[in-house]
Amino acid sequence: GKELVLALYDYQEKSPREVTMKKGDILTLLNSTNKDWWKVEVKATANDKTYERQGFVPAAYVKKL
Score class of each variant (00 low, 15 high):
Gly1Asp: 11
Glu13His: 07
Ile26Asn: 01
Asp48Lys: 09
Val5Trp: 06
Ile26Phe: 05
Asp48Cys: 14
Met21Pro: 00
Ala44Asp: 10
Leu8Ile: 09
Ala60Thr: 11
Glu13Cys: 12
Glu52Ala: 15
Val57Gly: 01
Asp48Ala: 09
Asp25Ser: 06
Thr50Trp: 10
Thr28Ala: 09
Tyr9Gln: 12
Met21Lys: 01
Lys2Trp: 11
Lys22Asn: 08
Ser32Trp: 10
Gln54Pro: 04
Lys2Tyr: 13
Asn31Lys: 06
Tyr11His: 03
Lys2Phe: 13
Gln12Asn: 14
Leu29His: 01
Val42Thr: 15
Trp37Arg: 02
Tyr51Asp: 08
Ser15Lys: 07
Ala7Cys: 14
Leu6Asn: 01
Lys43Ser: 13
Met21Gly: 01
Ala44Met: 15
Tyr61Asp: 02
Thr20Ile: 03
Lys35Ala: 12
Asn34Met: 08
Gly55Arg: 03
Phe56Lys: 02
Thr28Val: 15
Glu41Asn: 07
Thr33Tyr: 09
Lys43Glu: 10
Val62Leu: 15
Val5Phe: 05
Leu30Val: 10
Tyr9Trp: 11
Ile26Lys: 04
Lys43Trp: 13
Val5Thr: 02
Asn34Thr: 05
Lys49Ala: 11
Asn31Asp: 15
Arg53Gln: 06
Asp36Gln: 13
Tyr51Cys: 11
Met21Asp: 00
Glu52Pro: 14
Asp36Val: 14
Met21Tyr: 01
Leu29Ala: 01
Thr45Met: 12
Ser32Leu: 04
Pro58Asn: 03
Val5Glu: 00
Tyr9Val: 10
Tyr61Thr: 06
Leu6Gly: 02
Asp48Gly: 15
Gln54Cys: 11
Leu27Thr: 01
Arg53Gly: 05
Val19Ala: 05
Pro16Leu: 08
Gly24His: 04
Val19Lys: 01
Val62Pro: 01
Gln12Ser: 10
Ala46Arg: 13
Thr28Arg: 13
Leu4Ser: 07
Val5Pro: 00
Val42Phe: 08
Ser32Ala: 13
Gly55Thr: 02
Asn34Glu: 09
Ala59His: 02
Gln12Glu: 12
Gln12His: 13
Val40Ala: 01
Leu27Glu: 00
Pro58Met: 04
Thr28Ile: 15
Tyr61Ser: 09
Leu8Cys: 09
Phe56Val: 06
Val57Glu: 01
Lys49Pro: 09
Thr33Cys: 15
Val57Asn: 01
Lys43Tyr: 13
Glu41Lys: 09
Glu13Asp: 04
Leu27Cys: 07
Thr45Val: 13
Val19Arg: 00
Pro58Trp: 05
Leu65His: 05
Tyr61Leu: 13
Gly24Asp: 04
Tyr51Met: 09
Lys64Pro: 09
Val57Gln: 00
Arg53Trp: 06
Gly24Lys: 02
Lys64Leu: 14
Lys35Tyr: 07
Asp36Gly: 08
Gln54Tyr: 07
Asp25Gly: 03
Thr33Val: 09
Pro16Asp: 10
Asp10Leu: 03
Lys22Val: 08
Lys39Arg: 11
Glu3Cys: 15
Lys23Gly: 05
Gly55Asp: 01
Phe56Asn: 03
Ser15Phe: 05
Ser32Asn: 08
Glu18Tyr: 05
Asp48Asn: 13
Arg17Asn: 13
Phe56Trp: 15
Lys39Ser: 06
Thr20Phe: 04
Leu8Gly: 01
Phe56Pro: 00
Pro16Tyr: 08
Lys63Ala: 11
Lys22Met: 08
Lys64Ala: 07
Pro58Cys: 06
Leu27Asn: 01
Gln12Gly: 06
Arg17Gln: 09
Leu29Ser: 00
Val42His: 15
Leu65Thr: 04
Val42Gly: 10
Val62Ser: 00
Leu4Arg: 09
Leu4Met: 11
Glu3His: 12
Gln12Lys: 12
Trp38Arg: 01
Glu18Val: 05
Leu27Lys: 00
Gln54Asn: 07
Lys49Leu: 13
Lys22Trp: 09
Ala60Gly: 11
Lys2Glu: 09
Glu18Pro: 03
Leu30Gly: 01
Tyr9Asp: 06
Lys23Trp: 04
Asp10His: 05
Ala46His: 14
Ala7Arg: 00
Ala60Glu: 10
Glu41Met: 13
Leu27Val: 06
Val19Ile: 14
Thr45Asp: 10
Lys43Ala: 11
Arg17Lys: 11
Tyr61Met: 13
Asp10Arg: 03
Gln12Cys: 13
Ser15Leu: 07
Asn31Ala: 08
Thr50Ala: 10
Gln12Pro: 05
Phe56Gly: 00
Lys39Thr: 06
Arg53Val: 08
Asn31Tyr: 07
Gln54Phe: 07
Asp36Pro: 02
Ser15Asn: 12
Gly1Thr: 13
Leu65Asn: 02
Gly24Tyr: 05
Leu30Lys: 04
Asn47Ile: 09
Ser32His: 06
Leu65Pro: 02
Gly55Ile: 04
Thr28Tyr: 12
Val40Phe: 03
Gly55Lys: 02
Gly1Gln: 13
Ser32Glu: 13
Asp36Trp: 15
Tyr61Pro: 00
Pro16Asn: 10
Pro16Gln: 09
Trp37Cys: 04
Gly55Cys: 05
Thr20Pro: 06
Asn47Val: 09
Thr20Tyr: 04
Asn31Thr: 07
Thr20Gln: 03
Lys22Glu: 05
Gly24Gln: 03
Thr33Ala: 12
Lys39Ala: 07
Lys14Pro: 03
Ala44Asn: 12
Leu27Ile: 07
Glu18Ser: 06
Asp25Trp: 11
Pro58Gln: 02
Tyr11Met: 00
Thr33Gln: 12
Lys64Gln: 08
Tyr61Cys: 15
Gly24Trp: 06
Gly24Ile: 02
Lys2Ile: 13
Arg17Pro: 05
Thr28Trp: 14
Val19Glu: 00
Tyr61Gln: 05
Tyr51Ala: 10
Lys35Met: 09
Asn31Phe: 07
